[in-house]
């Protein structure tokens, strides 16, 4: 099983609910990552504000920060290799990296998408 490492920008917390405005992308990312974990994926998250040593101690991440700056975060490594930067992964991407085969059918029966036609 591959390990997914996510290097977050400086956050108060992983969903961003502690910020002055809650970032939708962070809320979704927290839910998606939690979903992937439930499917057995190995995921570790590092917060620049709380674990800066993890950034400094990884040559790929350190070089990325020096080259592109912290605004280019988050950075996603899969087994140590750069896989994605600048946004959080989708469920499909997480599933591919982690080798999760059975993607659940997206939100069938929810209010938004009833009748099999998505809005």
């Amino acid at each position: 099983m591959k390990t997914i490492h996510i290097f977050d920008p400086a956050l108060c917390c992983s969903t961003g609910v502690c910020g002055t405005e809650v970032d939708q992308a962070l809320v979704n990312a927290a839910a998606d990552l939690d979903w992937a974990r439930q499917q057995g994926a190995r995921i570790e998250r590092y917060n620049l504000a709380q674990q800066p040593l993890a950034f400094a101690g990884n040559a790929v991440v350190k070089a990325f920060l020096e080259r592109s700056g912290q605004d280019a975060l988050p950075l996603v490594l899969v087994d140590g290799e750069m896989a994605l930067a600048g946004r959080y992964p989708t469920r499909a991407e997480l599933a591919r990296w982690a080798g999760i085969s059975a993607l659940p059918v997206q939100a069938v029966g929810s209010d938004c998408c009833s009748g099999g036609k998505c809005c």
Partner: peptide, 10 residues
């Protein structure tokens, strides 16, 4: 160790 603006952000 990390870039200066990163340290300031933290």
């Amino acid at each position: 160790v990390l870039p200066e603006d990163v340290v300031r952000g933290i």
